[in-house]
Design a binder for these strands. Structure first.
Length: 665
DNA sequence: TATGTCCTTTTTTTT
DNA sequence: AAAGGACATA
């Protein structure tokens, strides 16, 4: 079977087009993944490209894994060895591991997670509370994603707060460098910096890369766009696939302007729109279209479908949030029984992770199996962070955050006061905590009782670091865990259930690492360097599992389900309380659009009359986005709301709506 | 000085 | 519910 069969004319053109830069504007459910995977296979099998010369960039590790698997199927044995499919961040990491020396980093640099970077920033800014800290982190991250240096930030700073933040930005970068560490933003920013000033490195990578495919292009940020340009050279050997209506990551620095910029920067840019939807019934599509119509759009497109009209969209009003979860569980049970479907045909989507808890409880009570996606990642778990701290420290002794974490968990007599003293001494000597622990100068300032565990810990790490390059990773890991008596410590400090779960996670992680070490013949240090960006739980036989999917709207992007329940369609949730106007409201609307367009056959929207927030009850009103769907498409059901407050809220909404309509005319 | 316990407070989305 | 802070204990 040809790689060009079973494609519509637009899809086929997008697959075949190789004359220059290409932008595929792919509406929801229009088969964009199919275009990308076919194109990769087409390039390799029909055009004779070396797989190593092709790179495809996706938005999540999971999407990358799936895409790689699909290309493998298409190639039917023809080897796709050497093909790169990964996230922008993983691509940046690969480049940096290779080229670290050119940037003044050692190749075993660490990659810090959000918790570590926030801790560093907290030290620097002395931010009074968590909110301020988050804001500071966001501002600096935005600067980095827009490729603004600390110097430039200082110059463009508009007010005193920003000037202070620019100073903090500089200190933050200096600290990272001292630790031989990078944050997520650096993984994009530094390759750009490298390619901008090092022509030799740039040309080497450009020559290697004959074609770059970028998925979810609408969610790229300034730095990612620049990296893409630098990698594909002046000819623009790329295929970018995106949908401006599904841009939902502006808060993370993604810039929809990148879509316009592409046409400006590449005059030869070819644009192919995909407008036929193969996913959803017409009612669902009409609802989606009528919601997104309220946004100003760059590329107006009208998505259409040949699939049947479908059922009306259900709107279910519930008494409160607990009742909402129970209702959803009940309706899934009933629907499954009635239509003889599988649990995996259902997804419950919501705005915030915290909403998941009630759904988990209700589904468990109803004996409905579920899988949670999004939410806390495997690598955010305390026990995994502990273990990776050891690994990081073994690979890179300059990594102070890793030193602090490893030295204090499990507890071994090193406490805050000792660390404080050690930190002071290290700062004076301009060296790492690890180095400082061995300095004789420290001994005069510290009691032997404090010094002893410090030295012992240092020696322990030293021994492991010495053996790490030569010995099998699996054995070293087992030894490490035995030496720190991690399992024992877990059972001492946690209740049995939690300890068991945590030790299970650790074992899984160690097994996975050991296997990987054997397969790829990699040392512990090399393994550590790739671990930071992976997510184990994602993709772990999730596909075969017959379970209802619980997911945030963000994590649901790119997925589809026969039956979708969109929960908490309320003001202050969707749209979120902090996103009530302007471009932020538009992004919330796109989020609603993404949610609706996940559904193939049926869509249910739920909202509550009240919900528990913190300690007390808050009255909720239905989302304004509900009003944007033609009421002929909707069927209201569930409990009639009889609370006076909710009815009052409804009246207020109507009055507001009328006022807005009047104002618009 | 280190660590465990009990209390408070608090929730957007993620590579 | 989970994380951070204040206090008590070893």
């Amino acid at each position: 079977m040809s790689l060009l069969s079973n494609l519509n004319p637009q899809q086929r053109e997008a697959v075949k087009y190789l004359d220059g830069p290409l932008l595929v504007l792919a509406g929801a459910g229009s088969g964009k993944t199919r275009v990308i995977t076919r194109k990769i296979a087409f390039l390799i099998a029909d055009c004779g490209y070396d797989p190593r010369a092709i790179t495809a960039v996706t938005f999540t590790n999971k999407a990358a894994r799936e895409m790689k698997a699909r290309v493998g199927e298409l190639l039917e044995g023809k080897t796709g060895q050497g093909l790169t499919v990964c996230t922008f961040h993983a691509l940046g990491l690969t480049i940096l591991r290779r080229e670290a020396k050119r940037l003044g980093y050692k190749p075993s640099f660490s990659v810090l997670d959000a918790a570590d970077t926030q801790a560093i920033l907290s030290e620097i800014t002395k931010a009074p509370d968590k909110g301020t800290l988050r804001q500071a982190a966001a501002v600096i991250s935005n600067w980095k994603n827009a490729l603004i240096t600390p110097d430039q930030a200082q110059q463009v700073a508009a007010d005193e707060t920003e000037r202070q933040l620019a100073v903090a930005y500089r200190a933050y970068q200096d600290t990272l460098r001292a630790y031989q560490a990078m944050d997520f933003d650096d993984l994009i920013r530094l390759p750009v910096e490298l390619f901008r000033c090092d022509a030799e490195a740039r040309e080497a990578w450009q020559n290697r890369m004959r074609h770059l495919l970028v998925d979810e292009y609408q969610d790229t940020n300034g730095a990612q766009y620049e990296l893409m340009k630098l990698l594909t050279g002046p000819l623009g050997r790329f295929t970018a696939v995106g949908d401006d209506d599904q841009a939902i990551y502006a808060w993370r620095g993604a810039d929809i302007e990148n879509l316009k910029r592409l046409a400006e920067d590449y005059s030869r840019l070819k644009i192919i729109p995909l407008t036929q939807n193969y996913r959803s019934c017409q009612r669902i599509l009409r609802a989606a279209n009528s919601v997104i119509r309220n946004n100003p759009r760059v590329h107006e497109k009208n998505l259409w479908s040949e699939l049947g009209i479908g059922d009306p969209i259900q709107v279910v009003r519930c008494k409160d949030d607990r009742n909402e979860a129970e209702t959803i569980a009940m309706r899934i049970s009933a629907h499954k029984f009635e239509h003889r479907t599988r649990f995996a045909d259902y997804a419950v989507l919501y705005r915030g992770n915290h909403q998941a808890r009630l759904f988990e409880e209700a589904l468990r009570a109803a004996k409905i199996p579920y899988v949670l996606s999004g939410g806390q990642s495997f690598f955010d778990r305390a026990e995994i962070k502990d273990l990776t701290a050891y690994l990081r420290l073994i690979a890179n002794q300059d990594d102070d955050p890793a030193f602090i974490r490893a030295a204090t968990s499990p507890k071994r007599g090193i406490g805050p006061t000792t660390l404080e003293k050690l930190g002071q001494y290290a700062a004076e000597r301009h060296c790492s905590l690890f180095e400082a622990a061995f300095e004789t100068g420290l001994q005069s300032r510290m009691a032997a009782k404090q010094l002893e565990p410090l030295i012992e810990f240092g020696n322990f790490i030293n021994r492991l670091a010495f053996r790490a390059p030569k010995e099998p990773a699996g054995r070293l890991l087992q030894e490490l865990l035995a030496a720190i008596r991690y399992e024992e410590w877990l059972y001492d400090t946690e209740d049995e259930r939690a300890a068991k779960a945590k030790w299970g996670n650790v074992s899984e992680f160690v097994d996975w690492l050991s296997k990987k070490g054997e397969e790829d013949e990699k040392s512990l240090i090399e393994l550590t360097q790739t671990v930071s960006l992976m997510n184990l739980l994602e993709g772990r036989d999730e596909a075969e599992l017959d379970a209802v999917r619980l997911s945030t709207l963000h994590a649901a992007k790119g997925l589809e389900f026969p039956h979708v329940i969109l929960a908490g369609v309320e003001e202050d949730i969707l749209p979120h309380r902090e996103c009530q106007e302007g471009s932020r409201l538009e992004e919330e609307r796109r989020l609603m659009y993404v949610g609706i367009t996940r559904a193939q056959k049926s869509l249910t929207l739920t909202c509550c009359g009240k919900r528990k927030k913190g300690g007390d009850w808050v009255v909720c009103e239905p989302s304004r986005f509900l009003d944007e769907i033609d009421s002929a498409e909707l069927r209201h059901s569930g409990q009639e709301d009889d609370s006076a407050a909710a009815r009052e809220a409804g009246r207020n909404r109507l009055a507001n709506l009328k006022a807005m309509l009047a104002a618009n005319k």
